[in-house]
């Protein structure tokens, strides 16, 4: 299982929080010190300046199916995460399933841009309704006045 995606810092850091949660499951058998960090690790203070580069950490956790691990690689540029690479060991079917769910469900905040400003040939949204539906709504609104 190996999925690479590019997204903003907030999303990537939210992902890391989940990794931390997974690693935390293992506290009795696999101390979080097992996670190793390559390259320079910046101090995790809010507002801190981070050094550009690629960072990798591996979190181990104990699942009912045995020891599992998840490796996360982040690329930082100008304090923004420009790439996230998550690899799960996923040696058991359940591990594959849960890691897959974590890896594949990507969350983000989005903003709207005017469709007029986009060079598109189609719009996909809710169904436009034919006359009957809208006429009926208009009638009900008129009756309610």
């Amino acid at each position: 299982m190996h999925i690479r995606s590019r997204q903003n810092a907030a999303v990537a850091l939210a992902g890391l929080a989940v990794i931390g949660g997974l690693a935390g499951c293992s506290s009795s058998t696999a101390p979080s010190g097992d996670a190793d960090t390559q390259d320079a690790a910046p101090a995790p203070e809010s507002g801190a300046e981070y050094t550009d580069g690629e960072y990798t950490a591996t979190g181990d956790y104990q699942s009912p199916g045995g020891a599992e691990s998840v490796t996360v690689t982040l690329t930082l540029a100008d304090n923004v995460v420009t790439a996230v690479d998550v690899t799960g060991s996923g040696s058991t079917p359940n591990a594959k399933k849960f890691q897959g769910e974590f890896i594949e469900n990507i969350s983000a905040e989005v903003v709207g841009q005017p469709i007029d400003s986009l060079n598109v040939s189609k719009v996909a949204g809710s169904s436009l309704t034919s006359g009957g539906f809208n006429d009926a709504i208009d009638q009900i609104k008129a009756d309610a006045d």
């Binding site: 709207g112 986009l118 060079n119 598109v120 189609k122 719009v123 996909a124």
Partner: peptide
């Protein structure tokens, strides 16, 4: 073709 994803709001 490019298709816009309409904002639900």
């Amino acid at each position: 073709i490019r298709v816009a994803l309409e904002h639900p709001f």
